[in-house]
Design a protein around this nucleic acid. Structure first.
Length: 414
DNA sequence: TCTGGGGTCCTAGGACCC
DNA sequence: TCTGGGGTCCTAGGACCC
């Protein structure tokens, strides 16, 4: 049996952990650049704020109901997430951490799940202060479904018999199923399928012909036949991305180069932190697709390195060069990013006869960068092309403190 | 005026190989 | 006039996830 444990309104709950006076009050967390709502407390949901609502469109509601607003504080959420996962790990010998706020656990050979599961739940809540819900079922897809139902059933839902599964599936909205997005939903709608129960009754042949292998998997999982395994050991990453929207539009290549310098520097740091190098560096630019009156441009280019690298100066110079190549005058750019792929461990450096190389040594400049920035804070030492005033930099006006990660922000008890 | 960021998996199609 | 078949690898793009 699989258990899906997920934190309720995770970012909102994490913010509330250090602001107990906000318990029972409406609260939302905004995306980067304070763009749109990405988490709401139950009270904020009741005020009519929807997931993904742009902040400027719900500003009136926020004022009207006196909703507390936070910019996203990923350092804080990452740290709280680790605590939750650590606690879950004590109950599940095999834990598959699926995202920042949820994990699949394996419940093999345990009987009496109806009694056991609530114990796990209350233990995690007691130890971390973060409310969690747990759904239990014979497949991952059904565990996700059970988890969703658990939110309105006291935080725990165990589907351990065919009878319980059939009852749960019967009226479950098909668009809430794991793996059903807008496109698949449209397809189901045309066939008058609106519940998971109806979907399950379709012949397997239909999935084969209309939905690729993903549909067949879903069909089997809905019938309680596990097809998606527990992924206890995360495989190495396939790619690493750093991308951000700009606070203001960028319309000049030199300013664009500043942003790309920062993003490529961050990317190189991330690669070094994971002891990886990349063979491909992709650079992309976006315009604002919500503005039909602006000329649109979504160029991208992938550069292949002769030798895999994670050096800040290498990646920055490529990113800046490629961005200059992609840039067009007269276009308002909204966002840009860099993606590293073709990742190889530092220990497996493949040399190239046609290029100079460092014989596998770490490059000294990057080492110094990492050392100084770790000791004195990110950005202490950086590349000159990153610029000085950075008007394009992220907006986060409602940022909470680094309660658990920054000495100066630790709560004092007087 | 103001609409996030970082991932995964799958498929189709092209290039290339023998 | 008639020009194969079976692979692999890579990339782009779509769909989905949180």
């Amino acid at each position: 049996m699989f258990a899906l444990c997920d934190c309720n309104n995770f970012y909102a709950s994490a913010e509330r952990l250090f602001r107990p006076e906000l318990i029972g009050k409406p609260l939302v967390v905004l995306s980067n650049n304070d763009g749109c709502v990405i988490a709401r407390s139950e009270e904020a949901k009741a005020c009519g704020i929807k997931m993904g609502d742009p902040e400027f469109l719900v500003r009136d509601l926020i004022k009207k109901f006196d909703i507390h607003v936070f910019s996203s504080n990923y350092v804080l959420y990452g740290d709280i997430s680790e605590r939750v996962m650590h606690n879950l790990g004590r109950w599940f010998p095999r834990l598959d951490v699926y995202s920042i706020d949820e994990a699949f656990g394996w419940l093999g050979g345990i009987r009496n799940l109806e009694n056991y599961t609530p114990v796990i739940r209350s233990s995690v809540i007691r130890n971390t202060g973060i409310p969690v819900s747990i759904g239990v079922a014979p497949t991952k897809t059904l565990a996700k479904l059970a988890n969703k139902l658990s939110k309105k059933a006291g935080g725990v839902m165990v589907l351990d018999t065919d009878k319980k599964i059939s009852a749960a599936v019967k009226d479950f909205p098909v668009h809430d199923l794991w793996g059903v997005g807008r496109q698949h939903y449209k397809k189901f709608e045309q066939l008058n399928i609106s519940t998971a129960g109806q979907l399950r009754e379709m012949p397997e042949m239909w999935f084969k012909q209309n939905m690729t292998i993903i549909g067949q998997r879903m069909w089997n999982e809905l019938w309680g036949r596990p097809v998606i395994p527990l992924d206890a050991v995360r495989e190495t990453k396939k790619g690493i991305t750093v991308s951000r929207s700009f606070r203001n539009y960028i319309e000049h290549p030199d300013i664009l180069a500043e942003a790309l310098t920062l993003y490529a520097s961050r990317l190189a740091e991330k690669l070094r932190a994971e002891n990886l190098r990349c063979l491909y560096l992709q650079v992309f630019l976006y315009t604002n697709k919500n503005r039909e009156d602006h000329p649109q441009h979504f160029p991208s280019h992938t550069h292949k390195l002769l030798i895999a690298s994670n050096s800040t100066s290498d990646l920055v110079s490529i990113a800046v060069r490629v961005s200059a190549m992609l840039f067009k005058y007269g276009v308002k750019y909204r966002k840009a990013g860099v993606i590293a792929s073709g990742l190889v461990p530092e220990s497996e450096l493949q040399l190239n006869v046609f290029a100079s190389h460092d014989n596998g040594k770490k490059d000294v400049v990057s080492q110094v960068l990492d050392k100084l920035n770790l000791a004195y804070g990110r950005g202490t030492l950086r590349m000159a092309t990153e610029g000085y005033d950075k008007k394009w930099r992220l907006k986060h006006e409602y940022l909470s403190k680094g309660y658990t990660t920054r000495w100066a922000d630790i709560i004092k008890v007087i």
